[in-house]
Write a protein that binds this DNA or RNA. Sequence first.
DNA 1: TAAATAGCGATAATTATTCTCATTTGACAC
DNA 2: GTGTCAAATGAGAATAATTATCGCTATTTA
Lengths: 144, 144
Amino acid sequence: MEQRIERIKKQLHSQSYKLTPQREATVRVLLENEDDHLSAEDVYMLVKEKYPEIGLATVYRTLELLTELKIVDKINFGDGVSRYDLRQEGADHFHHHLVCIECGSVDEIQEDLLEEVEKVVEKRWNFAIKDHRLTFHGICHRCK
Amino acid sequence: MEQRIERIKKQLHSQSYKLTPQREATVRVLLENEDDHLSAEDVYMLVKEKYPEIGLATVYRTLELLTELKIVDKINFGDGVSRYDLRQEGADHFHHHLVCIECGSVDEIQEDLLEEVEKVVEKRWNFAIKDHRLTFHGICHRCK
DNA sequence: TAAATAGCGATAATTATTCTCATTTGACAC
DNA sequence: GTGTCAAATGAGAATAATTATCGCTATTTA
């Protein structure tokens, strides 16, 4: 955890941003809840426990910054809220999601799986893929 | 076009909904702009040209209804607006999108391409896939 | 024809997100 | 260390998309 924070700090510094206490507290919340898919409001509530003075706008700004630096990915499952997801260290592609239409759970798929599909798309549509979003909606193993 | 409207009308009737003039006007706009990815506001503006008395709420309600009946799909490209996309007649899967990060254009991919991937996901994650969302972000052929 | 109900338009309310601005902080020069 | 200055922050206002409310209209049913 500490090492991960240290590396994020370096990433910020390399673009001349600072890892302020507020930003660090926010990053810690994201690390501690890596399996969840927190909304900005969720993050705000959790950060407040450790850092009660923080403002909602700061959380939004931090999430925006982290998104810009590709440390987190901003996703949208169609429920009207943006959610934020830490990108795996060293991952050059964004992971996929399984959204259960019964229980609402969201599981992650870290495997790429799209290599072949992307080759086809790049060639056939002459499109240079920089990023992707893949979500499956269905019934999860727990609800079957 | 007329036949397509006729079929949509039947689909509505089969669930005891009516194809009111407002709903028909809305559907026509969607059909006439099938290649675009209109927001609710976009649809509203276009419907107003033909049917000026229509209210924004009615457009929202109609789009919601059409989404529920799977006549359209509601998508989100991360720009804070929901967009509505007619589903291909007879299509059991939702088509994919290519979003250009240069010019903002959105192209469609009607081919499935995910058959193999879905087999793997169904088996390995024991997940019953009902629908999917796949979007690629990158540089389109026009901007390259 | 009367009653019941679905749908409508206008607008208020809600919700997520962004903006503004006065204040604070922290890195750096001296 | 102390002063300087841009960057960052907190509080709350502003914005924008969407949803809810409510009185009215139209259409179907009895």
